[in-house]
């Protein structure tokens, strides 16, 4: 990949990764607020649960790019370990294509589905279900550069002091 394209892709993945991290913090805060309002104030916030579900779904699909980028998507590595390097290279190419096929299906049919549910309202929130469903095609499309980067320049996530 050309270097400007590679660095733009890295930036994009980093951006989606940061958004996902913020969404995780937001979901935690929402559920904590739910406990506080119900137990502490005797009156539960009624919208926290529904919003937290939507936030976590967005997080899952937004972080897919980083997950593929850093090879964190949990494969079974047995065949790769025993075949000669040339075959391994081929297998990894096929795997990358299959992952892209998967993301393609998610992006295309995810868009169709997000449009199909536009008439449906999310319970408790007066917004269209499309806002929740849109996480799938958006996340799938934004994950494509992550898959390509992982194939061309594999790198693991730095786990910092947690290891």
């Amino acid at each position: 990949m050309r270097s400007w394209a590679a660095s733009a892709s890295e930036k994009l993945i980093s951006l989606t990764h940061n958004i996902a991290a913020i969404l995780l913090a937001l979901a935690t805060a929402l559920i904590f607020i739910q406990v506080i309002t119900r137990f502490g104030m005797g009156r539960a916030a009624v919208w926290t649960e529904v919003v937290a579900r939507g936030v976590v779904i967005w997080m899952v699909f937004m972080v897919a790019g980083a997950g593929f980028r850093y090879g964190a998507m949990i494969p079974l590595e047995f065949i790769r370990g025993v075949v000669p390097p040339s075959v391994k290279r081929l297998v990894m190419g096929v795997v990358t294509l299959l992952v892209l096929l998967f993301l393609g299906v998610l992006a295309w049919y995810g868009t169709m589905m997000a449009m199909r549910v536009s008439g449906q309202k999310v319970a408790m929130l007066q917004i269209s279900m499309s806002w929740f469903y849109a996480a799938i095609p958006v996340g799938a499309l934004l994950a494509v550069p992550g898959v390509l980067l992982a194939h061309l320049a594999p790198r693991e996530l730095d786990r910092g002091a947690s290891e």
């Binding site: 119900r38 005797g42 009156r43 539960a44 009624v46 649960e49 408790m124």
Partner: peptide, 11 residues
């Protein structure tokens, strides 16, 4: 809410 209860939606 109108009746004065504290409605709590829960799965």
């Amino acid at each position: 809410n109108a009746a004065g209860a504290a409605p709590t939606p829960m799965s």
